[in-house]
Design a protein around this nucleic acid. Structure first.
Length: 734
DNA sequence: CACATTTTAAACATAA
DNA sequence: ATTATGTTTAAAATGT
């Protein structure tokens, strides 16, 4: 309190400040109406939405894959021969898998050499390809199912759909599972990535186009499809890949996010309760169709908008009737699915082994969601009006549980999970080993879709927003895309519109990216070599307007899509209550920044036993190291590429785990600051947000962290310096 | 149970 | 007059 008063004096500066802020509110006329909505829409308008970006990236990846396939296919005569090429593609992957998991700093350094980088890139691409193929297969299968369904529908009535739906659902689940596994694998792999033999069937990938428009791909797909019905296996393949991507994307989304997919359904909640077959439950609901979601047709390559189910059915019957084309598509889909399943089996096995090795129990549904639900329900009871634009369904309380299973699979691996298990409202404010970023990274999809209260304090969340996330988000999309063909985590992109937009896209918000870690690694590499455009350097400052913060909350957490008045108030309250949040006046208005130093400072008081725990977690067995690095990978993968201390992480994995401290992040922040093109903040303000407000005397520069940082940086590169941030695996021990 | 943090609620203040 | 932002208080929750 006393402290508060002190700060208060400083903060509640006289009207002087206010006067300056005349421009503050209502920054843009464009936003128009209510601040909230205005802001949201504003984001949507301005830049590519995350969804879009994701989509785009995926498309890109697909494009690459497509080319590859095409090339491969060239030597093949019929579509059925797809299988034949599999081995070729798989080779690299398997090799990658086999590679050692840990990398020594030296190795890392080596990697940095251009040739190495190249090799790595190739590897990555190969992997990507592999994954894409898998997806492709899956999609094929799906297609097949679709066909069946359709046929029946054509003759009889949608009656039969349930079955198809169930199957689809199951497949979706499989897919998701696979995705998760892949993610893990990749993350792990990432560590061993370096040692992978260069080349190897990756050649074709190099030709990958730099930038492809999603729409282009889509278009292409359509064209091809239309043009060559069945025979053209080759082209079909290429097309399919594309299709497949979009599909898989939408799929997972539908799966993962109940709200989105179930909107029409009355029983959103109960539906998703079961972990495994819950999926089946959702489809039987009248008024829904596996191929219909977000108001558009999800048939591969078709994104036709349909007002309602009826219209959709009509569309389905007319546009996707049983003809050569559809048949071909189904065939392709089948193959895709087949391959995916095979891969899934393999990966599952691997995953099991890995987990066993790590002394972790095989993935199993966790109690996690339940407790949270309780909380949420309690809170919800008094639900206030929801401002959330997309009119997402607000399933009663229970709706959350369902999604969890899949998302949790991964989390099981991470140590963070261990902490989460707690009962009701467990705050995981980075007290323990799992940094919020990490935890969030791992479960972002979960939180994004499940109406679960995130185990973080408002303060930590807010800080999170303003730290890593936003930067990535603001990074110019196009440039980013060039770095790697790997899809980026949805929330890498910020300023995207809330869910509704998605519906149009047909792409779910968060697509399980096959290889986040990999992608990131690649990007980092690239960036290290200045292959990267200025994107990273242009990374925006870490400052947000209140509204942006709100948006982040709603975007990232399903939980914060309701009771807006409540949590917004809380946010505001936190903002002004905690010293660590600094308000900076800007021409355009006021933005909030985080004083890392302050932020770090406020935790020490309490956590007594935790450090020990942390240490145990970290150091315990070799596992600790691996786990840490693994976590780091996860965290990084999900968070902005910008924070690219890949090297650092890696190195940490190999030995400098102990170094991790939150200080680093804080320090880094200061060091980082340099990009001055922030839209709303002047350079100066930006660079020293901290000073702007409270006691500037605070001397936020800790010498030690800095030194650490510096050291690290050297290993890394210019590009990365600003991103070191809090991605450090073991970071907060304090 | 006491104590420290957080979260909720609300009253107010200001600027647009 | 209304709304979005901010500030503050106070009390209820939660976690240690």
């Amino acid at each position: 309190m006393m402290v508060e008063s002190a700060s208060e004096t400083i903060r509640s500066t006289p009207s002087g400040q206010n006067g300056v802020s005349s421009l503050t509110n209502q920054p843009d006329g464009g936003g128009g109406g209510g601040g909230r909505e205005g802001a949201a829409s504003g984001e949507a308008n301005g830049e590519m939405s995350p969804v879009e970006l994701l989509h785009f990236q995926q498309q890109q990846a697909l494009q690459v894959a497509r080319q590859f396939l095409l090339q491969q296919a060239t030597g093949l005569s019929s579509p059925s021969s797809n299988e034949g090429k599999q081995p070729a593609v798989q080779v690299p992957v398997s090799v990658a898998m086999m590679s050692p998991q840990m990398i020594t700093p030296q190795q890392m350094q080596q990697i940095l050499s251009p040739p190495q980088l190249q090799a790595l890139l190739q590897q990555q691409q190969a992997i990507m390809l592999q994954q894409l193929q898998e997806y492709y297969k899956k999609q094929q299968e799906q297609l097949h199912l679709q066909l069946l369904t359709q046929q029946q529908a054509g003759k009889q009535q949608p009656k039969e759909q349930p079955l198809g739906n169930k199957q689809l659902a199951f497949q979706q689940q499989l897919l998701q599972m696979q995705q998760l596994q892949q993610q893990h694998l990749l993350n792990l792999q990432r560590q061993g990535l370096v040692s992978l033999p260069p080349g190897q069937g990756t050649v074709p990938l190099q030709t990958l186009p730099q930038a492809v428009c999603p729409s282009d791909l889509q278009q292409l797909w359509k064209e091809v499809t239309a043009a060559q019905p069945v025979e053209d296996s080759i082209k079909q393949e290429g097309l399919d890949l594309t299709t497949n991507t979009s599909n898989s994307t939408s799929f997972s989304a539908a799966k993962v996010s109940p709200p989105i997919s179930h909107h029409p359904l009355p029983n959103g909640q109960s539906t998703m309760h079961t972990p495994r077959r819950d999926s089946s439950s959702h489809e039987e609901t009248p008024g829904s169709h596996p191929l219909y979601g977000h108001g558009e047709c999800k048939w591969p390559g078709c994104e036709t908008l349909c007002e309602d189910l009826g219209q959709f059915v009509k569309h389905l019957n007319t546009e996707h009737a049983l003809d050569d084309r559809s048949t071909a598509q189904c065939r392709v889909q089948m193959q895709v699915v087949q391959q995916l399943e095979i891969q899934l089996a393999k990966e599952s096995e691997r995953l099991q082994a890995m987990m066993a090795h790590l002394h972790m129990r095989p993935s199993e549904p966790k109690p996690f969601s339940q407790p949270l639900n309780l909380v949420s329900s309690a809170t919800l009871s008094k639900s206030t009006s929801d401002t959330f634009p997309d009119g997402l369904p607000h399933p009663p309380t229970s709706a959350t549980a369902p999604i969890t299973p899949l998302r949790q699979g991964p989390s099981v691996i991470s140590s963070s999970t261990l902490h989460n298990v707690g009962p009701i409202r467990r705050r995981n404010s980075e007290k323990f080993c799992t940094p919020i970023s990490s935890e969030l990274a791992q479960n972002h999809e979960f939180y994004k879709n499940a109406d679960v209260r995130p185990p973080f304090t408002y303060a930590s969340l807010i800080r999170q927003v303003s730290a890593p996330l936003r930067r990535a988000g603001s990074a110019p999309v196009p440039k980013t895309l060039l770095w790697a063909s790997c899809p980026l985590p949805a929330f890498l992109v910020q300023g995207e519109p809330p869910y509704q937009e998605r519906s149009l896209q047909g792409t779910p918000p968060q697509t399980p990216n096959p290889a986040p870690g990999c992608a990131r690694a690649v990007r980092v590499m690239l960036s290290s070599f200045s292959l990267v455009p200025q994107a990273i350097l242009e990374t925006p400052d870490r400052q947000l307007t209140l509204n942006e913060i709100y948006n982040w909350f709603t975007r990232m957490f399903a939980y914060f899509r309701r009771n807006t008045a409540t949590w917004k108030n809380a946010v505001r309250h936190n903002l002004s209550l905690h010293k660590c949040f600094v308000r900076v006046e800007n021409v355009k208005g006021a933005v909030w920044t985080v004083d890392e130093h302050e932020y770090q400072k406020r935790r020490p008081p309490k956590m007594t036993g935790s450090p020990t725990l942390v240490k145990n977690m970290i150091s315990g067995l070799g596992y600790g190291a691996l786990n840490a690095s693994y976590q780091a990978a996860l965290a990084e993968s999900s968070f902005p590429l910008l924070n690219s201390p890949t090297m650092i992480n890696t190195s940490s994995a190999s030995g400098m785990l102990h170094v991790g401290h939150d200080d680093v992040s804080s320090t880094v922040e200061q060091v980082n600051s340099n990009g001055s093109n922030s839209p709303r903040l002047s350079p100066q303000q930006y660079s020293h947000p901290v000073h702007v407000k409270e006691e500037p005397a605070e001397a936020e520069d800790d010498s030690r962290p800095v030194s650490l940082l510096a050291t690290t940086n050297q290993n890394v590169t210019i590009a990365d310096d600003r991103d070191l941030e809090e991605e450090l695996p073991v970071e907060d021990l304090s």
